[in-house]
Design a protein around this nucleic acid. Structure first.
Ligand SMILES: [Zn+2]
Ligand SMILES: [Zn+2]
Ligand SMILES: [Zn+2]
Ligand SMILES: [Zn+2]
Lengths: 137, 137
DNA sequence: TGGCCAATCTCTAGTCACTATAGAAAATGA
DNA sequence: TCATTTTCTATAGTGACTAGAGATTGGCCA
């Protein structure tokens, strides 16, 4: 059995985060030692690795909760799980698009300043006037 | 003089957000009517447009506060302002890079599933095992 | 077995940039 | 004048943690 510190070291998830996941219902309430400390075995470690990986890929706690619920029913069709992954892909692509638009404008704003006094600073003027932008963002 | 509602409609910034910006010190404490309601004129409107545009470009409240402070000293050199813009550009580019890595893995995860039962679902398995990923992310 | 210190416990509050709500007061229009 | 709309303050909630206080517990060495 692993202590919460052991589990933390093995998975790379910080101790308070593990307790947070338990509170959020992503991890089942852990077994306890006589002195009320959490003890973990292999299945909890696997579950935590799943959560960690899903979080690294940007899934929300809510989406992860749904996936965990689905995992409890191995015979059911997996459409829901596939949909969650597809939606996350779409969300990431939208974020990239938004950021690319920002990058375009910021590149202009950050590189065009002659760099003299504040009162002539291109950065300050460009931030004050969206009309100077090449497109919406 | 504009009421807070007028200002909100003209700038597209929601009323509670305007009050929040005041509380955060981005907007000076507004003049008040006899009945204690906020009243705004052109300079406050320009300031708010500046804040809005900067926020749309992803700058933090803290960065915007610095830029506003700088604007109060028109004779000073503008290096600081230029640096803030450059840092934001860098931050945006880093975010794009991270998201691109996520997109790569998510694309694989979201499109490879044959789509039968949960127990065979590629999505679930791929989330459980980072080793299946093509690279770090 | 005692003592010590690291690890763990619970609970609360803080982060960021808002957003939502409640209940009271002010402004507006018919 | 009265009803409706707008505004006021203050507080709490969002998401996903992170940080701290103060109290217990665990493991190790003598
Ligand atoms: Zn400049
Ligand atoms: Zn713009
Ligand atoms: Zn599937
Ligand atoms: Zn991975």
């Amino acid at each position: 059995m692993l202590t919460i510190g052991d589990l933390s070291r093995k998975t790379g998830v910080k101790i308070p985060t593990i307790r947070y996941y338990e509170q959020m219902g992503l991890l089942d309430a852990a077994e306890r030692s006589e002195g009320n400390q959490r003890r973990y075995a292999a299945p909890e470690r696997e579950r935590l690795s799943f959560i960690k990986h899903a979080r690294e890929l940007g899934l929300t706690i809510e989406a992860i909760r749904e996936l965990i619920d689905l995992s409890a029913h191995p015979e059911r069709p997996c459409e829901e799980a596939d949909r969650i992954a597809a939606e996350q892909l779409t969300a990431v692509r939208e974020k990239i698009e938004k950021l690319r638009r920002l990058e375009k404008e910021l590149k202009r704003i950050a590189t065009r300043c002659a760099g003299d006094q504040i009162k002539d600073c291109y950065v300050i003027r460009a931030l004050a006037h969206h009309e100077m932008c090449e497109s919406d963002h």
